[in-house]
């Protein structure tokens, strides 16, 4: 399960560059990343480890859950 702090994201795209499953994509207009394919996530935690502002957290859950995005304007 991905927990993503949208407000903290600085759009550096480090997560996009290290994700081997294409979960993240850059929103060129807002200059922040978006979760494009959350179902592809395999909990490798590369994005969590590389994020310079700690905006991403990967939690282990036995029951599959939708990603939680914090602070994203509608």
């Amino acid at each position: 399960m991905i927990i993503f702090d949208y407000e903290a994201c600085i759009g550096c795209q480090d997560c996009v560059k290290v994700c081997p499953r294409g979960v993240w994509e850059i929103d060129a207009i807002r200059k922040k990343v978006e979760i494009a394919k959350s179902r592809n996530c395999i909990d490798c935690t590369a994005c969590e480890f590389q994020c310079p502002v700690r905006a991403i957290r990967i939690e282990r859950t036995l029951i599959p859950k939708q990603p939680l995005v914090i602070g994203r304007p509608q």
Binding site: C41, D43, L62
Partner: peptide, 11 residues
Amino acid sequence: TPYLGEDQMTR
């Protein structure tokens, strides 16, 4: 396989 997450593996 590179498609399976750790959570899915536990399940």
